[in-house]
Design a protein around this nucleic acid. Structure first.
Length: 251
DNA sequence: ATTATTGTTGGTAG
DNA sequence: TCTACCAACAATAA
């Protein structure tokens, strides 16, 4: 469940469950192995893009990425596909949280300093907002990249994935194949509005459903043209050939 | 049996 | 140094 809105929900869950609590035990194997961390207090649970950064009392940092199928659950019993767990205590009450990840694309990293994957992230749409000028500059530099692939580049904006990019471009009425460098200022503005729209509505209700993602073959909700599915950068892309304008590279 | 899946990364090539 | 492309990672679900 892993684009910005889902990860933000996960962050809020963790904040409620374990913030200001003290770690009693940790568990994890293989690529999800964890050091003891016993006795450290959990100070903050932060997020940037799709990454979560948990800051502990001795300044140790616990980074987590959900990959494709990762999620945190609160459970006293071991869960199917559980890869790691934390037991914490606050006011004498114990809480156990489990990191579950069937496909194991996620990451758990303990470090003393920010890791490169975190540091390389572009601005977070929720945390920092989206600056039109800065975004336009970054897109302009990616001349040959499609706008959809550019939006999914985590150094452009942190947290935009396949679904949010697909939905935002539909809202902005821009064909996802358009070269990123072909967007004029008004197009960038429209993309920003589209991103704010899709992120907000997913954040508000994770089960609200998507407007065009996964709806190939169905009529466009806006113009009734049949939605099509293509592959861009190896990722499924849905769009409406009727009302999403294909922009051409500008000289 | 085949195909597709909300993501990143490391290697390669230009 | 920067951009672009792709296979690899893994376990289902249709």
């Amino acid at each position: 469940m892993p684009e910005l809105p889902e990860v933000e929900h996960s962050r809020r869950d963790l904040e409620r469950w374990i913030r200001r609590a003290t770690i009693v035990a940790t568990k994890g194997e293989g690529k999800f192995a964890l050091p003891s961390l016993r006795g450290r207090r959990i100070e903050t649970v932060e997020r940037r893009g799709k990454w979560i950064r948990i800051v502990l009392s001795d300044a140790t940092l616990l980074f987590n990425h959900h990959g494709m199928t990762g999620e945190w659950k609160r459970s006293d019993e071991p869960l199917r596909w559980e890869r790691a767990s934390l037991v914490v205590e606050k006011n004498g009450k114990r809480t156990r949280v489990a990191y579950v990840d069937p496909r194991k694309f996620g990451r758990l990293v303990v470090a003393r300093e920010d890791i490169p994957s975190w540091s390389a992230l572009g601005p977070d749409p929720l945390e920092h907002g989206i600056d039109a000028k800065a975004l336009a500059d970054k897109l302009a530099r990616r001349r040959k990249r499609s706008i959809k692939e550019a939006l999914m580049d985590q150094s452009v904006l942190a947290g935009v994935g396949n679904i949010q990019a697909t939905e935002a471009l539909w809202k902005a009425r821009i064909d996802p194949r358009s070269p990123a460098g072909a967007l004029a200022k008004k197009h960038v503005t429209a993309v920003i509005k589209g991103l704010r729209w899709t992120i907000a509505r997913t954040l508000d209700d994770l089960d609200v459903g998507f407007v065009i993602y996964g709806h190939k073959g169905e009529p466009c909700p806006r113009c009734k043209t049949t939605l099509v599915r293509i592959v861009l950068g190896g990722r499924t892309t849905t769009f409406c050939p009727g009302c999403q304008e294909r922009l051409r590279a500008r000289p």
